[in-house]
Amino acid sequence: MTQCNHGLMQAFKLVKKVQENEKTTTMWLDGNLENATPGQYVMAWLPDVGEKPFSLHSATPLALTICAVGPVSRAITALNSGDTLWIRGPLGKGFSLTGKKHLLVGGGYGAAPLSYLADEALKRGDQVVTCLGAASAKDLMLIDELTRLGATVHVTTDDGSFGTQGLVTAVVLEQIETDKPDCLYACGPTGMLMALWDICQAHKIPVQLSFEALTRCGLGLCGACELDETLCARLGLPSGWLVCHDGPVARLNLQN
């Protein structure tokens, strides 16, 4: 790892790649990201290719779980051991562990930040239950890692090719009714997040939701990542809430 002279981008070397599923790879890098918390993100830059935001899979050492969906993520996941990836961050506000019983929910590649969060909670001796949902078995990831860390893992797929057939929210509801968590943490598609918000409202559970948005400056200046105002209103967030700066994690209802 090399600290650049202007303190902006840190150049990391790729140590190891772990294929999580057909499109998703965890990139383990050769240094630590200081002062990071689960749910925060970094901007990863490849010169001549571009720069995109990715949540942290781990901070010590730094690892990013990246789904190859566009030119930048495809180029990054095509790197080989010893290649350099430039990182700026950690950026934004992450999750804050609340209570002792944690329910983690990941939709698709939204599972990416959850093993870091699970690891932090399990290190405290807390209980962690994880519900992962995906379209199909080939879209699932991190099941083995979460299990190995000591989390209970429930899995759903839309097509029933793995785990329970159906939406992850159904399993979440069952889990809440069986053993009410102190807080729910989720990352995934906005529709899933809003469904979880409704469930948590109904069951009076504090909830922390990690949103995805088009991120350009990553500094809260350009306005590109503004969360839709109707969502802000539903969630009780101020209008003009910026995913890159105020989030990506919205910590909601912590007082209830």
Partner: peptide
């Protein structure tokens, strides 16, 4: 659309940007 990323960075003297009049 403006320019592609990286479009802005915070460095020790402040900010540099080339958003590109999005």
């Amino acid at each position: 659309d403006g320019h592609a990323n990286p479009v802005a960075l915070a460095w020790q003297g402040g900010v540099i940007n080339a958003i590109g009049l999005t």
